[in-house]
Design a protein around this nucleic acid. Structure first.
Length: 592
RNA sequence: GCUCUUGUAGUUCAGUGGAUAGAACAAGGGACUCCUAAGCCCUAGACGCAGGUUCGAUUCCUGCCAAGAGCACCA
C-alpha cells in the first residue's frame, strides 16, 4: 500500500514528507503528519510551516513535562538537520518555518508538469468509486433562466473535478416533464393559439420563448383566477392519464423544450450519460409509496398520503395528493430506485438550489427507511441563488433572465472590446470562447453555497478576477513561445538543454514554482469539498503572479540558459492554467 | 410562529481556532521608444451586536438584530 501511495506522490507531497520525517526524527516519535503543515502568511517567513501549539499539548500529555509551543519550536529548530530539500529553518515564535530548495523544487515541478502535461495534478483519491452527479434538471415547458445556467456550470465543473480526482462519474439529468407546471403551460398555450401556430415554423429559441410566456400566463392565472385554476388542474389530470386530447400537444411541446435544452448543453460543453424524466418514474414512485403505506412508513391523511417528518425532527410532506397523483416526493422515490438499480453509485450528488434543502432532508430520510442501502449515499449539493441586483429571479413572474440572453450579452460585450484588437482571423470563434469564459468564471469563482448578486456589467467584465483575464494570460505566454527563436524546451530530446540546468533565481520565479507545485493539492481539496471555486481562486492567483513576473523580467531577451529556463517555467504555468481552466469548462485561445 | 442558510472594505467575493484578515470592482495617483495595456505598480478602506468556551475567537457555542429560503396536496 505504501508503495502505491509513493508512486502517486507529486513533487510537493514528497517535499512535505521529507519535512515531516525530519521533524519526527528530531522528536524521535511520529507525532507530526503532512496535514499539520500550513502555509505562512508572509512568504518572507518561509515556504511552509509547522504551528507548534498542538505538538506542545501532545508532548506535555505524553511526557508530562510542560513545554510551551515556543520552546518546542526552538528545540526543533536546533535539532532538525537540513538536507537538499529544505535549505533553511526559521523559528518565529511558535511557528517553525521551512524554506524549500527552490532550485531543486523548480526542476522537479517543471519537469513533472511538462512531462505529464494535461495529466498534471490528477490523483486517484476516488479510485474504484462511482459518483452520480445529477444536475441541470430544467423542467420542460418552462424558461431556462440563469439559475439553470449556474446549476449546469456547477454540476459540470464538479463532475470534471471529481473525474480528475479519480472517480468514475455518471452525469445524470432529471427533468420534470409531468406535473402542474406543464398543465399551466398548456393552459397558457390554449390562450395563445395564434402564436402557437406561428411559432411552429420558427427556430428552437422562438419555440422555447413561447413556452416560457405560456407558462408565465398560466401560472399567473392559476393564482389569480379560480376558473383557470380548475381548468389547469383538469389538464394536469389528463396529462397523468395520458388523455388523447392533450397528448399530441404535450408531446410536441415537450420535444421543443428538449431540443432547445440540447442546444444549450452543447453550447456549454456539457453532456449527460443518462436523461431521467419524471414521466418514467411517477408510476413506480407511486407504487413504492403505496407499498410502504401498508408497512406504515407513510400515512393516509386528509385524502393524501404523507410522510410524517416530525418523527425525525423534520416536517411532513405530501407524497401522493388527494387526486391520487404522485407528487415530486413520490417521484423521487421511483427515481432513487432506478438510479441505484442502473448504476449502483457510491454516492448521488443532487445539484439543486437551496430552497429545497428541507425538502431533501425529508426525502433522504424516507429513502433511508424504505431503501436502507441508500443511507449515506444521497446528498443534496446546494448552490446559492442567482439574483439580480434589483430583485430575485423567478420564472413565475415575467422578469426572468434567460440563460441564452446572458450569453448573448456577454458576446456582444466581447465583440465591442475586440473592435480595437489587433487583426485576428478567427474573431467569431474567439468571441465565443471568451464570452463563455467570462460567464462561466464569474459564476464558478463564487463558493457554491453563496448567493450571487448578479450584475451583468461585472459578470462580463474582463478586468480583474475574470475568465478572460486567465485566457489573456495564456495568450501572452503563447505569444512569447511563438516568438522564441530557441528550440522548444518541450522537445528536449533534440535539444542540448536539460531541465537540470534550470537557472531560476528571481524571487518571483521561486514564488511561481511553489505555486505550481501546489496545484495538485488544490485539485484534491476542490474534489473533497465539491468546490470549483477552489480551482478558480488558485488560477487567478497563479495568473496574477505570472503577470507580475512578466512585467519584471525579460524572458526572450535574457542569456540563453536563463531564457530557456524561463521559457520552461512559463510553459509550465500555461499547462497548469489550461488544466485548471479545463476543469471549469473554460477553453483557452491562441491569440486574443 | 417553527426550521434552515447567510451577515467581512462603498460594492462583489476570499479566508483561518493562532504570526500583519486577502483580492477584484468602484475612487485617487503612477510607469510605456520594452516579449499582447483585456496588462502592471502605488494609495485609501472591513470581520452585524452581546455574552460564553479557549492560553488565544473574525472562525466554535448561545442569545439578539438583519437578510434570504422552507414549513400539506407546486417542482
Amino acid at each position: 500500500m505504501l508503495k502505491g501511495a509513493k508512486n502517486t506522490m507529486n513533487t510537493l507531497d514528497k517535499v512535505k514528507q521529507n519535512i515531516v520525517e525530519a521533524i519526527n526524527a528530531a522528536l524521535k516519535e511520529k507525532l507530526v503528519k503532512a496535514s499539520d503543515l500550513v502555509y505562512p502568511l508572509n512568504p518572507a517567513f518561509g515556504d511552509i510551516s509547522l504551528p507548534c501549539f498542538n505538538l506542545a499539548k501532545e508532548l506535555t500529555r505524553l511526557r508530562r513535562q510542560e513545554k510551551t509551543a515556543v520552546e518546542i519550536c526552538e528545540f526543533l529548530m536546533g535539532k532538525i538537520v537540513l538536507n537538499d530539500v529544505v535549505v533553511a529553518i526559521k523559528a518565529i515564535g511558535p511557528f517553525l518555518n521551512f524554506t524549500f530548495n527552490k532550485a531543486k523544487l523548480g526542476q522537479e515541478v517543471i519537469e513533472e508538469i511538462l512531462k505529464q502535461k494535461e495529466k498534471y495534478g490528477l490523483n486517484q483519491n476516488g479510485k474504484n468509486k462511482r459518483i452520480m452527479v445529477e444536475f441541470a434538471h430544467p423542467n420542460t415547458h418552462k424558461a431556462f433562466h440563469i439559475g439553470h445556467l449556474r446549476n449546469i456550470l456547477t454540476g459540470e465543473a464538479i463532475a470534471r473535478i471529481l473525474t480528475a480526482n479519480g472517480y468514475k462519474i455518471i452525469r445524470a439529468n432529471y427533468q420534470g416533464d409531468v406535473g402542474l407546471h406543464i398543465a399551466k403551460c398548456l393552459w397558457g398555450i390554449s390562450r395563445l393559439k395564434k402564436e402557437y401556430q406561428e411559432v411552429k415554423a420558427k427556430p428552437a429559441e422562438a419555440k422555447a420563448g413561447l413556452l416560457g410566456r405560456a407558462y408565465a400566463l398560466g401560472s399567473k392565472n392559476y393564482e389569480e383566477n379560480a376558473e383557470a385554476k380548475k381548468e389547469i388542474i383538469e389538464i394536469n389530470k389528463k396529462i397523468y392519464n395520458q388523455d388523447k386530447t392533450v397528448m399530441p400537444i404535450y408531446r410536441a411541446t415537450r420535444k421543443w423544450s428538449l431540443d432547445y435544452f440540447a442546444g444549450i448543453y452543447k453550447k456549454l460543453d456539457t453532456k449527460f450519460d443518462r436523461l431521467y424524466f419524471e414521466s418514467e418514474v411517477f408510476s413506480s414512485g407511486r407504487e413504492i409509496v403505496l407499498r410502504n403505506l401498508k408497512k406504515g412508513v407513510f400515512k393516509a391523511s386528509r385524502g393524501a398520503v404523507i410522510f410524517e417528518g416530525e418523527k425525525y425532527g423534520l416536517h411532513s410532506r405530501v407524497f401522493i395528493n388527494s387526486e391520487g397523483n404522485p407528487t415530486y416526493e413520490a417521484k423521487d422515490m421511483g427515481l432513487a430506485e432506478l438510479q441505484f438499480k442502473e448504476f449502483r453509485p457510491e454516492k448521488i450528488l443532487h445539484v439543486v438550489g437551496p430552497e429545497q434543502a428541507e425538502y431533501f432532508k425529508v426525502i433522504i430520510k424516507a429513502l433511508e427507511i424504505i431503501m436502507p442501502k441508500t443511507k449515506g449515499r444521497e446528498t443534496h449539493l446546494r448552490y446559492g441563488w442567482v439574483r439580480l441586483k434589483e430583485g430575485k429571479m423567478s420564472s413565475r413572474l415575467g422578469n426572468v433572465v434567460l440563460g441564452e440572453w446572458l450569453l448573448g450579452e456577454a458576446k456582444k460585450e466581447v465583440l465591442e472590446i475586440m473592435k480595437s484588437a489587433r487583426g485576428l482571423k478567427n474573431k467569431a470563434e474567439v468571441a465565443d470562447k471568451v464570452s463563455l469564459a467570462a460567464v462561466k468564471y464569474s459564476i464558478l469563482k463564487n463558493g457554491p453555497d453563496k448567493d450571487i448578486a448578479f450584475d451583468l456589467k461585472e459578470s462580463v467584465s474582463f478586468n480583474g478576477s475574470s475568465g478572460p483575464y486567465l485566457q489573456y494570460t495564456v495568450a501572452r505566454i503563447n505569444s512569447i513561445t511563438r516568438k522564441s527563436q530557441i528550440p522548444n524546451p518541450k522537445s528536449q530530446k533534440n535539444s542540448k538543454f536539460k531541465i537540470q540546468d534550470l537557472k531560476l533565481e528571481d524571487a518571483k520565479e521561486q514564488g511561481l514554482i511553489v505555486k505550481l507545485a501546489r496545484y495538485p493539492e488544490v485539485l484534491a481539496v476542490a474534489g473533497k469539498n465539491y468546490d470549483p471555486s477552489e480551482i478558480a481562486k488558485y488560477l487567478f492567483e497563479l495568473a496574477q503572479e505570472f503577470n507580475d513576473y512578466y512585467h519584471s523580467v525579460r524572458i526572450l531577451k535574457a542569456k540563453t540558459d536563463i531564457s530557456l529556463a524561463r521559457l520552461s517555467l512559463i510553459m509550465a504555468v500555461k499547462q497548469a492554467l489550461e488544466n485548471g481552466l479545463g476543469l471549469l469548462g473554460i477553453e483557452t485561445v491562441e491569440k486574443m
